[in-house]
């Protein structure tokens, strides 16, 4: 618990500092600079890998036989998919040029014709929350299940 507190404190301070002292902005888009996007994509791959590992591990050796693990596995699966989608989205965004957008940075922003596969997939990738929200939903369900069972066990 003490480690956790330290962790939270450090994270909070870092957040504050980073917001209050904005440095020079090299990036054009979310991860404009090649290095930034590269690190970000690597992080996505790492995350997907870690989730796959967790999925495999919980499947292989369920420490506690519970429905909670099943939900956690769903969460892992969906979040892996989300990672891949997000990764694809970032990759595709690099392929798109300013000419592919109409009314960029306005409410009526559009993808200009002619439509290509890249544009369609980019469009889908932009709606990555369709994956992320269900994944988190399963995470919550998993924890809820664990909690209920743990309560029963403690009360017993």
């Amino acid at each position: 618990m003490r480690n956790l507190n330290v962790y939270i404190t450090v994270a909070g301070i870092y957040l504050l500092v980073s917001f209050l002292m904005p440095g020079p902005a090299w990036a054009l888009q979310s991860h404009g600079a090649p290095e930034g996007i590269c690190v970000h994509q690597m992080a996505h791959i790492l995350f997907a890998g870690a989730l796959a590992y967790l999925y495999w591990h919980t499947r292989k050796s369920p420490a506690i036989a519970s429905r909670g693990w099943r939900y956690l596995q769903y969460f892992c699966g969906i979040l892996i998919a989300w990672n891949l989608l997000a990764f694809t989205g970032h990759e595709l965004y690099e392929l798109l040029t300013p000419e592919d957008f109409i009314n960029k940075d306005t409410w009526s922003e559009q993808l200009s014709p002619p439509l290509s596969g890249v544009k369609i997939i980019y469009y889908i990738a932009k709606m990555d929350h369709v994956f992320m929200v269900p994944a988190l939903f399963y995470l919550v369900r998993s924890l809820k299940t664990f909690y209920r069972e743990a309560r029963l066990e403690v009360n017993k």
């Binding site: 922003e109 559009q110 993808l111 932009k126 709606m127 929350h129 369709v130 929200v133």
Partner: peptide
């Protein structure tokens, strides 16, 4: 014709909110 990005933006907006909410739920449990 061109594809309006507005639906994607709406999904992004509310999806983000929902994700925050759910993740904090998970923390709570």
């Amino acid at each position: 014709s061109s594809i309006p990005l507005l639906p994607a933006l709406i999904v992004e907006f509310f999806g983000s909110a929902a994700a925050i909410l759910l993740s904090f739920y998970a923390v709570r449990y």
